[in-house]
Nucleic acid binder design. Structure first.
Length: 701
DNA sequence: GGTTACGGT
């Protein structure tokens, strides 16, 4: 352990707790970002994971690790195997066990933000992905565990620049970062089910190993270096559970040689890493290892060091291979999430297994029952609270609680997107009531126009996990929708639904609509959970906001800035700047200010842009913009200004926070305020000219 | 079969 070299860069733990994040954690993230920033960024598109999944075969040697989990980052794991909404991959452990690992897609997104794909060298891709190999506690992985290592992939070998990749990676340290996640429910069940009997190796090779890449399994196991015989997996496992403090086995000599051979490794060293290493060395947990652990570790170690290059494996991409549901899954801690929680029934583990792992053990009927689905008008409807993250498309309907304005995606195929939040209409209790849906269409008019209170049915939507919740995605061309307007009582159909007019489904929607509205009255729109959408007049100096504005003029100073207005006024906006609106002259404004004895009450806010300033090239006065995550600030004169992004500070440096508004309604609203303002100005000008032209002494005295 | 969007200060 001691002297272990830096084939990994440790970045310490990151908690991904979304809302309450410690300063220390933020700092670590930042440090990690800086660290990563040393490397050339890959073109994200190039890493398109799907493309790689046919060729990228990682064989990962997961070392015994210290603590509850260790995380290993590998890029492009994301699409390696997608099963029922979770990403899955299979790894071969030191003892030739095949581990089936799964984690929700959200994880990848999370990590992607912090660990952008790096290109260590032209033919080695690296980046995010996770394997978590807890050795001391129950094997488990947390969907929300963040990754804490960057791999020095110089250890990777490629037998062909464009085909398979093989790598031996050692995970040298464990990190315990957990947050309840959706999958935990499933895993908890598993744990419950398996707790009664001696715990088998959690990631053991499935009995029906042909499910998971037989070609990997068998030939691979032959060709792989035979690990030390570790016969009693179950014992190891249970032993591991007790050994919270075990350490990794890694051969220091070999590693150090490697390290010398590759001076670049030094670049990977970060203060965090060194510190971490040191503290670990000092408290070398190996000294506390039980005899058993010790023997395991020592027997494993030599092999790991002298691992021959892996044998090329030709196999189908994992995403065509179902995970085996008989494989005991990692155990999760008790979840605080009630999403997809089901009543305790004997078949629940089957259900969750199916839900999360895509097995074939459960009949369609059983799934339908477990999800309390019912067929309505030819559509199998899953109540929102029963929607689970799965590979299969689902149908549901619910009440719209709120929706975001339609925006146009800034990347991908640049489709229009509507985000709507649906509330369950089925009288079930104890389930998450809201679900987010993102519907994409290439034409804005193909998206539903719905308001809070409307019923919305979404047919054939996909699921994924995002931000610890299940999220629905409506893809253009395949996802259909029906809106029942609360206002008019009329239905609106998507193009695809228009063809089939599922009237029975409409009836059902209306029934639920009536029932809901009868029982709870006309529901008040639920406020969006998103960042506050504010008029400029509502901006508070300390609260980040989103706003929809018109560009008045572009910057005239050093720092790129756009002057914007939504034609509302704020006491902390300088009226003098309203001259940019070309409605009042400077003199007129001056007089107004004198009259009102107030410099504020202006309508124009300068918004300084600190990131993606290149997009300002495409922005000109008159444009309508949606600005997100604007940080308000009081300047020296105590006037409000907005700030978008701060490259050095941002945890999401690539996010673009300025969009042109696609929604005509929003533009109209701004236009209306503009007209009102112009009218008001015309009147006041007329008045003042009247006062001037009339001989009588004016009120300004 | 599933990018884009969402998230955070």
């Amino acid at each position: 352990m001691k002297g272990q070299k830096n084939h990994l860069v440790s970045c310490d733990a990151i908690t991904t707790s979304t809302y309450e994040e410690s300063t220390a954690s933020k700092l670590r993230k930042k440090q990690i970002c800086n660290l990563i920033g040393q490397y050339k960024l890959d073109d994200e598109k190039e890493g398109r994971l799907g493309r790689l999944c046919n060729t990228a075969q990682w064989i990962i040697k997961v070392a015994q690790s210290r603590g509850a989990m260790s995380c290993l980052m590998i890029k492009n794991v994301d699409y390696l195997g997608r099963r029922e909404g979770v990403w899955a991959m299979s790894v071969i452990t030191a003892d030739n066990q095949k581990l089936n690992l799964a984690f929700p897609g959200r994880w990848f997104n999370e990590v992607k933000e912090y660990f952008r794909p790096q290109q260590y060298n032209p033919f080695i891709l690296s980046g995010a992905g996770a394997i978590i190999h807890p050795s001391s506690d129950k094997l488990s992985f947390s969907a929300n565990a963040c990754c804490l290592y960057m791999l020095d992939v110089s250890q990777f070998k490629s037998d062909n620049q464009h085909s398979a990749w093989h790598g031996w990676l050692d995970v040298s340290e464990a990190v315990i970062v957990e947050k309840p996640s959706l999958c935990e429910v499933a895993e908890e069940r598993k744990a419950d089910a398996t707790d009664e009997e001696p715990q088998p190796e959690i990631f053991s090779t499935p009995p029906q190993s042909q499910h998971l890449s037989p070609s990997v399994n068998r030939p691979q196991q032959k060709s792989l270096p035979t690990p030390p015989a570790v016969d009693e997996n179950s014992n190891i496992q249970s032993d591991n559970r007790k050994q919270k403090d075990q350490t990794i086995s890694c051969k220091e000599e070999t590693v150090s040689q490697k390290s010398q051979a590759n001076p670049r490794k030094e670049e990977f060293l970060s203060p965090i890493f060194s510190t971490k290493r040191k503290s670990i060395d000092e408290n070398d947990p190996s000294s506390h290892r039980s005899q058993k652990q010790r023997s395991i570790a020592s027997s494993v170690e030599p092999d790991w060091l002298d691992t021959p290059a892996p044998v090329r494996i030709d196999r189908r991409p994992m995403d065509t291979l179902p995970l085996d549901t008989n494989t005991p899954t990692p155990s999760f801690k008790k979840s605080s999430s009630n999403i997809s929680e089901k009543p305790a029934t004997s078949n629940q583990s089957n259900t969750t297994a199916n839900t999360f792992r895509g097995g074939k053990t459960m009949s369609k009927k059983a799934i339908a029952e477990a999800q309390e689905q019912r067929t309505v008008g030819g559509y199998l409807i899953t109540p929102i609270c029963k929607v689970t993250c799965m590979y299969k498309k689902q149908n549901t309907f619910g009440r719209v609680t709120s929706n975001e304005q339609i925006i146009r995606a800034g990347s991908g195929t640049g489709d229009y997107k509507l985000t709507a939040y649906l509330e369950d209409v089925f009288p079930l209790q104890g389930y998450k009531p809201l679900m987010t849906f993102n519907l994409f269409e290439s034409k804005q008019s193909d998206l539903p126009s719905c308001k809070a209170g409307d019923m919305l049915a979404i047919v054939n939507f996909a699921t994924r996990e995002f931000n610890s919740a299940i999220q629905g995605t409506g893809y253009k061309g395949s996802t259909g929708w029906i809106v029942l307007s609360a206002e008019t009582g009329k239905f609106q159909f998507s193009k695809s639904m228009e063809i089939a007019r599922p009237m029975i489904l409409c009836d059902e929607m209306r029934t639920h609509f009536d029932r809901m509205y009868k029982s709870i009255g006309t529901p008040a729109p639920v406020e969006s959970r998103r960042r506050r959408q504010a008029k400029l007049s509502e901006v508070e100096p300390t609260v980040f906001f989103n706003a929809e504005v018109q560009v008045v003029s572009m910057w005239d100073g050093l720092q790129p800035c756009i002057y914007v207005t939504d034609y509302t006024c704020h006491p902390r906006l300088p009226m003098a700047q309203d001259v940019r609106l070309n409605v009042y002259t400077q003199d007129e404004l001056k007089k107004q200010m004198e009259r009102e004895r107030n410099e504020g009450g202006g309508r124009v806010m300068p918004v300084y842009v600190w990131e993606h300033t290149d997009i300002l090239q495409d922005i000109k006065a008159g444009d309508y913009l949606s600005m997100r995550n604007v940080r308000p600030k009081l300047n020296k004169a105590d006037f409000l200004e907005g700030n978008i992004g701060d490259k050095d500070d941002s945890l999401h440096p690539n996010k673009i926070n300025i969009y042109k508004i696609a929604d005509e309604e929003i533009i109209k609203a701004i236009e209306e305020r503009k007209e009102a303002y112009q009218e008001e100005a015309a009147i006041s000008q007329a008045e003042s000219s009247y006062q001037q032209s009339s001989a009588s002494p004016s009120a300004s005295q």
